[in-house]
Computed example of a mutant assay.
Amino acid sequence: MSGDTVVSLPEELLGEGVWFRVEEAVTAAAVRRAAERLATDLGMPDRRVADLSIVAAEAAGNLVKHADQGLILVRAVRTAEHAGVEIIALDSGPGIADVDRAIGDGHSTAGTLGIGLGAILRQASRWDMYSQPGRGTVLAVQVWPVAPPAPGWVAGLTRPLPGETVSGDAYAVRQDGDRRQVLVCDGLGHGGLAAAASHEAVRTFLSGAFAPPAATVDALHRALNHTRGAALAVAELDTSAGLVRYAGLGNIAGTVLAPDGTRRGMISMPGIAGHQRRQVREYDYPLVPGAVVLMHTDGVVDRWNPSDYPGLLTRSPEVIAATVLRDAGTRRDDAGVLVARPS
């Protein structure tokens, strides 16, 4: 990966991070400790560790006080030179009718995240939020030891099946100059063997030569023959040509969401990478300025409709992905979402 694009680290806590279901004060304390530990492991200075501690404590505390079904993800983000910590908080609570007013210190109602949101944002290097009355709120906050990098064009989230410690879903991003490719994969089943298949796909994708999506999928198919196998798809976002080039095997869903509300589904071929496939085919789809590419595993239902979320597609990829995961992710499987907006 070149430049200052933000990506997750590949290790456990330093990668996809740790999810917390936040319902009690004891869990809020665990969130704060996990954030502090991660920041320390990343070598962040004490001052920024202290700032992050405030962010984590306030974000988790607000979920305990005001939210329904609150979840928090703590994970690392990095560039080639620096590493920071990202906290993503999501809930299905009453939502916020007036976000600007809620940001002000001292404002707290049953329909807001409560007192402390202003304190969170003051300590943050970067933040974004989306909220709807009756649907809930998603807040993404990053704390960096130095000035934050430019906002990323892509973000992904994975969540394991409840009861599992690892997710069989994974994603990866690579960039070579203006060429940008993303991978989403779903290891067969769930648990450790599913995660091993997806991790092998990610490793092969990131270490392999840059090639068109169909050739990349074919290489991944060969590399996974000693694993349980996976569904996977690769998309290349070519902004100069105004195209998404897409190839997939299995039930990875891909959609191009245009600013005018047009949705165009992308085609994956039947099969299981590593075990069975037909000829891998590559398809081109229009990519207009401002369009969003959304890819997800079958742990996310296809009934999600962006027209029900006014303004969401203008938010950061992290917030879009978290909103989709919250509202369309199932509890019967691992779930993974990737959102890319290259322009």
Rank of each mutant, 00 (worst) to 15 (best):
T239C: 14
V202P: 07
Y285C: 06
G336S: 03
V146P: 01
G192K: 12
I103L: 14
G152P: 10
A155L: 01
S167I: 01
M266G: 05
G329W: 06
A50Q: 13
A50W: 06
T262N: 07
Y285S: 08
D128Y: 07
G156Q: 01
L294R: 12
A140C: 05
V300L: 02
A35W: 00
E16Q: 11
A97S: 14
W19L: 08
V143K: 06
V319Q: 00
D98Y: 02
P45T: 02
T109W: 08
W304N: 07
A147M: 05
D169L: 00
V99A: 09
T40A: 00
A30M: 12
G70I: 03
S92C: 15
V301Q: 14
A209F: 13
R174W: 04
A322I: 01
G329Q: 00
G84R: 00
E36R: 12
G290R: 04
R264I: 08
V244L: 05
A201S: 09
L220I: 09
G134D: 05
T262C: 05
G84D: 09
L9M: 14
P306Q: 11
I54F: 00
A110H: 12
A60Q: 00
L117I: 08
A110T: 14
G114Y: 08
P289D: 11
L287R: 05
A172Q: 04
G95R: 06
S2N: 15
A67W: 03
P149S: 00
R341N: 11
L232D: 09
F20T: 02
A102I: 01
R228H: 13
A110D: 14
V292C: 11
P45F: 02
G290V: 11
F205D: 06
V244M: 11
G152Q: 12
V301E: 14
L232H: 13
S8A: 15
R277K: 05
W304V: 11
H190T: 01
P160Q: 10
T239P: 12
T165R: 09
H107G: 06
A59T: 03
E24A: 14
G336K: 04
A214C: 03
V146L: 07
G93H: 05
E236S: 10
T112G: 01
R222Y: 10
G208V: 04
G290S: 08
V26F: 13
P148F: 03
T5L: 15
P160Y: 04
P212W: 09
Q69K: 12
R135A: 07
G265F: 13
I54Q: 05
P45C: 04
A124D: 03
V244H: 10
L157Q: 03
H275S: 02
N225Q: 15
H275Q: 05
G156Y: 05
P342C: 07
V74I: 07
P133C: 11
L71R: 03
